Simulated scan of single mutants.
Amino acid sequence: MSSIASVNASLAGAPATPTPTAGVSARADAGPPMAPSDAPAKPDAASAASAVIDSAQAADRARKQRAAQELQKQIDQAMAQSRTRTSLRFRVEEDVGKIVVSVVDENGKTLMQIPDDTALALARRLAETGSGLVDRQA
């Protein structure tokens, strides 16, 4: 206990040293903190990010289109050698950016489609609103 009393006594007589506050440097060679207006001007990050996203989306659409065309070519070659009367058709729905696969008969009538028209309509709705399925916000 005597050691605690001597520490408390030495602290009581010592002058109070201020502690630095948040954001203030305790170094002696540091200048005053920079105000937000002193910060160097940065290019508009939102427009730069938007341009990057648009570029990536365009590249993705082009990649999907090429993939659909190549797949269609391979399927046509395989179906030409087979004896089936149905075929597969691939296309890219531009407004939603999805590849659509259709099973068609020899007359060109669509027998089945993946994703179906309902799913494509839902995807279009989501792409248009950007906020989901709800028309109103609270």
Rank of each mutant, 00 (worst) to 15 (best):
S55T: 04
F90D: 01
L71F: 02
L126I: 09
D117L: 05
Q113W: 02
T84L: 15
L11K: 11
R89F: 08
A51L: 09
G132E: 03
M34Q: 13
A46D: 02
D54W: 01
A119K: 11
A78D: 11
D44E: 09
R83E: 11
Q65R: 15
R63W: 09
A121L: 00
A59N: 08
A28F: 00
A48R: 14
D116M: 04
A35R: 07
Q69D: 13
A68R: 07
V104W: 00
R136E: 10
A22R: 04
A9C: 05
A127R: 09
R125M: 13
L88Q: 09
N8M: 04
A68W: 01
R85P: 00
A138H: 02
S55E: 15
G23C: 10
A68F: 11
A45N: 12
M1P: 14
I114G: 02
A56Y: 15
Q69L: 10
T118E: 12
V101F: 03
M1F: 12
A22I: 11
S55A: 14
E128H: 09
P40Y: 07
D29C: 00
P20S: 12
S50Y: 06
D135W: 07
N107K: 05
A5R: 13
I99P: 14
S55G: 13
T86H: 10
L111P: 02
G31R: 01
P18H: 13
S131D: 14
D117W: 01
A127M: 15
A49E: 13
T19H: 08
R61M: 14
D95H: 13
V103L: 00
I53S: 15
S87A: 04
R66Q: 06
D117G: 01
Q113K: 00
P33R: 08
K42P: 03
V104Y: 09
S25L: 12
D95W: 13
Q81C: 02
P43T: 04
A58S: 09
E93I: 00
A49K: 07
P43M: 05
A22L: 07
A12T: 14
V7I: 12
A119P: 09
A58D: 15
K42E: 10
I53M: 12
L133K: 06
D29V: 05
